[in-house]
Design a protein around this nucleic acid. Structure first.
Lengths: 134, 134
DNA sequence: CTACAATCCGTAGCGGCTACGGATTCAAGT
DNA sequence: ACTTGAATCCGTAGCCGCTACGGATTGTAG
């Protein structure tokens, strides 16, 4: 029925310190305490924490998750949530494009120094001299 | 010949505070000072700072850049640099794969709520219920 | 009732900056 | 030479999302 922070941590895979952190910043509701002051959680908390963790792996910031959580309690959140998700998707796609550009540039440079032990390194040159980076 | 931190900032596009920060953590060499204590830079510093900034846009951490800088002064750095670059490339590719998975999952969820103003939101559901996320 | 595990809390650190603010110092104009 | 206003000085603290530390208390099984 009720369990401690250790059990919640094991169930969700979330670090104990992180659970307390989420509570401190108001993401996770404050659970009731035992007589001695220990936090006592129930299924509700596990559910919310799982939500937070999944949203994190989706790349949402804690501020965004805060909004998602409050939207999840609202009447008709679908439009708002969809808007957030779409914004997020385009941010992700932009990031992917940047990273692909990066990988290509680096790959290009490393190709030029493959099997080469010479003192003059193409990768270093790429970093020193912008002209070669394309 | 010699110029102040403001000029270096303008030349490189790097924030003044960031320049001082890089000096503080030992990335950028300490420049000579004027009689009154102002930093006086020369082309050498601009070159190094450009290197750092380009390495940053390549996604190298400051710790990695520190290594790259010291390698750039070594005799035959090519092998070591290439190893770092290859490691970095594979990290980037992994990150891209993660992001693509993310975008796909989110896209999937948003598609299911497109044009839908109903109170029951598929994106929220995806976050609450792992089973639907695939 | 004794051990020993679990949990408590506050504080400080990480990376990579960015911002603030009061005290200088510099460069240009007169 | 002197004044003014911009530039720079420095230290400190804040941002995010945790993570680690450590000494004091509680909880629980034998």
């Amino acid at each position: 029925m009720r369990y401690g922070i250790g059990a919640l941590s094991r169930d969700t895979g979330c670090n104990i310190e992180t659970i307390r952190y989420y509570e401190r910043i108001g993401l996770l509701p404050e659970p009731p305490r035992s007589a001695g002051g220990h936090r006592t959680y129930a299924a509700e908390h596990t559910r919310t924490l799982d939500f937070i963790l999944r949203a994190r792996t989706m790349g949402f910031s804690l501020a965004e998750i805060r909004r998602l959580l409050s939207l999840s309690e609202a009447e008709a959140p679908c439009d708002d949530v969809q808007a957030m998700a779409l914004t997020h998707i385009s941010a992700i796609r932009n990031r992917i494009a940047e990273l692909e550009q990066l990988a290509a540039t680096l790959q290009n440079a490393t190709n030029r120094c493959a099997g080469n032990s010479a003192p003059h390194c193409p990768v270093i040159d790429t970093l020193f001299d912008d002209a070669k980076s394309a």
